[in-house]
Amino acid sequence: MLTVPKPYPKEFRDDVVNVARNREPGTHLKQVAADFGISESCLTNWMKAADVEAGVKPGNTAAQNADLAAARRRIRLLEQENEVLRRAAAYLSQANLPGK
């Protein structure tokens, strides 16, 4: 069974990004990532996300993504409720037809 690793705490991610941004010239991201026990691609993703959160790069922030996910869940629920009501109305209109 595949297990999903727990996400690193935000403070840890922020600290690693800060160290990566303030690294000494000649130090590669790969080395910074290895020092913290993460992959280079993970560090790169954290740095991109930090840039979006800071408004340096365009994109959705974590808060916007959470709002979007909540809105999608709400839309899905409303669509399901609408379908139930549509079917109930169709059933009840058939039951009230003359001759039945």
Score class of each variant (00 low, 15 high):
Asn60Tyr: 15
Gln80His: 14
Gln80Leu: 10
Asn60Ser: 12
Glu24Leu: 12
Lys57Asn: 12
Asp67Gln: 15
Gln80Ser: 13
Cys42Tyr: 00
Asn60Gly: 04
Ala20Cys: 04
Phe36Thr: 04
Val16Pro: 01
Asn82Ala: 14
Thr27Leu: 13
Trp46Glu: 00
Gln80Asn: 12
Met1Ile: 05
Val19Arg: 11
Ala95Thr: 09
Gly37His: 00
Val17His: 02
Glu83Pro: 01
Asp51Val: 03
Thr3Lys: 05
Ala62Leu: 14
Ala95Ser: 07
Leu92Thr: 01
Ala71Glu: 06
Pro98Val: 10
Asn18Gln: 10
Gly37Pro: 00
Asn82Arg: 14
Val4Thr: 03
Leu92Asp: 03
Ser93Ala: 11
Asn96Phe: 07
Gly59Val: 10
Glu81Asn: 10
Val19Gln: 10
Lys48His: 04
Asn60Val: 09
Phe12Arg: 13
Arg72Met: 12
Ala88Tyr: 09
Tyr91Asp: 04
Asn96His: 06
Ile75Met: 13
Ala66His: 06
Pro25Glu: 08
Ala33Cys: 03
Ala34Cys: 01
Asn22Thr: 11
Ala50Val: 00
Ile75Asp: 08
Asn82Glu: 11
Phe36Arg: 01
Arg13Asp: 02
Ala70Pro: 02
Ala71Ser: 06
Val52Phe: 08
Gln31His: 10
Lys100Gly: 01
Asn60His: 12
Arg74Phe: 11
Val32Met: 02
Arg87Ile: 08
Arg72Ile: 02
Asn22Trp: 02
Arg86Tyr: 08
Lys57Gly: 04
Phe12Ile: 14
Leu29Val: 00
Lys30Glu: 13
Glu81His: 11
Glu11Ala: 14
Phe12Leu: 14
Gln64Ile: 08
Arg13Gln: 12
Arg87Tyr: 10
Asn18Arg: 10
Ile75Val: 15
Glu79Gln: 15
Val32Glu: 03
Leu85Gly: 00
Leu85His: 01
Arg23Gln: 07
Pro7Asn: 07
Pro25Gln: 08
Gln94Glu: 13
Glu53Gln: 12
Asn96Met: 09
Asn18Lys: 10
Pro25Val: 15
Gly55Met: 07
Ala62Tyr: 11
Pro9Met: 15
Gln64Met: 11
Leu92Asn: 08
Pro5Ser: 12
Ser39Ile: 05
Val32Ile: 15
Val16Asn: 00
Pro98Phe: 07
Asp51Ala: 08
Ala49Glu: 14
Ser93Cys: 02
Ile38Glu: 00
Thr27Gly: 00
Arg74Ile: 09
Ala50Phe: 01
Pro25Met: 09
Arg13Pro: 01
Ala89Ser: 05
Lys10Asp: 04
Cys42Glu: 00
Tyr91Glu: 04
Glu83Ser: 12
Ala54Cys: 05
Leu68Phe: 15
Val16Lys: 04
Ile38His: 04
Arg72Asn: 09
Arg76Pro: 01
